[in-house]
């Protein structure tokens, strides 16, 4: 059978393993994005709104971290959660928490950088308007988040998209264990190396659909902001 038709058949027939792998991937991506949201927003807002020595340097470092290879993050986290590492006793290596931790570190600079960039673009009159209307710090913060809600949504969707499509962290920290830590990207890599294209293609199609959906949402958010 044509591998492409075979891949479509796997999707249409609702192949249990294909959809379990897709579900595991989305599960990891959801939690890593969720865990990066609060610190990411806090750091992004801090960088955008408060002047402190070294602020530009911190922003530059964060921006550089968005391009960090996933295997480097995998290696870094591995050194902490491997048996001989300081967090080895937690048993997170080759388990979902290890993957989520690594992906959180991957998502975090993306959220920080995009929130910082988005908030920096807010009109200078915006803050002056809030101040002159009497808003205190907390209300200004809430109003800023409301004003920039599409920027923030775009940052989180970008981070989600990035972790959904990564291989290095999932492979190094999850170990690609069947029914447990196997994700779409690690399965595609494995199946392709074995010459089993049908399932790799089916997951590729699903991954593409997810990427397109995320892109459409990001595009809609950015367009709404404009």
């Amino acid at each position: 059978m044509n591998p492409f038709l075979g891949a479509l058949e796997l999707i249409v027939s609702g192949d249990r393993e294909v959809f379990l792998i897709a579900g595991t991937t989305l599960h990891f991506s959801f939690w890593s994005t969720a865990f990066s949201t609060l610190p990411g927003l806090a750091l992004g807002i801090l960088l955008a709104n408060y002047r402190f020595p070294g602020r530009r340097a911190v922003a530059a470092v964060v921006s550089s971290l968005t391009a960090l290879p996933t295997v480097v993050i995998g290696l870094f986290v591995y050194s902490f959660i491997s048996r001989s590492g300081p967090l080895g006793s937690l048993g997170w290596l080759f388990a979902p928490p290890g993957v989520v931790l690594g992906q959180t570190l991957l998502a975090l600079p993306i959220v920080v950088s995009l929130v910082y960039t988005g908030l920096s673009k807010l009109d200078a009159r915006f803050t002056e308007t809030l101040v002159t209307l009497g808003a205190g710090r907390l209300r200004r913060l809430a109003s800023t988040l409301f004003e920039a809600k599409y920027v923030l949504a775009s940052a989180l969707l970008n981070a989600f998209g990035r972790v959904t499509g990564e291989v290095g962290v999932s492979m190094m920290l999850g170990g690609n264990i069947r029914w447990y830590t196997r994700t779409m990207t690690t399965t595609i890599a494995l199946d392709t190396s074995k010459g089993e294209f049908e399932r790799a293609l089916s997951l590729g199609i699903l991954l593409l659909a997810i990427a397109l959906a995320i892109n459409a949402l990001v595009h809609a958010a950015v367009k709404h902001e404009e």
Partner: peptide, 22 residues
């Protein structure tokens, strides 16, 4: 401002904003 900034949302939210602060 000479070229005022209106907050996201409705006109009502804008005019009510300072009153809610108070």
């Amino acid at each position: 401002h000479q070229s005022p900034f209106l907050l996201a949302g409705t006109v009502y939210r804008n005019v009510a904003y300072g009153l809610r602060v108070r």
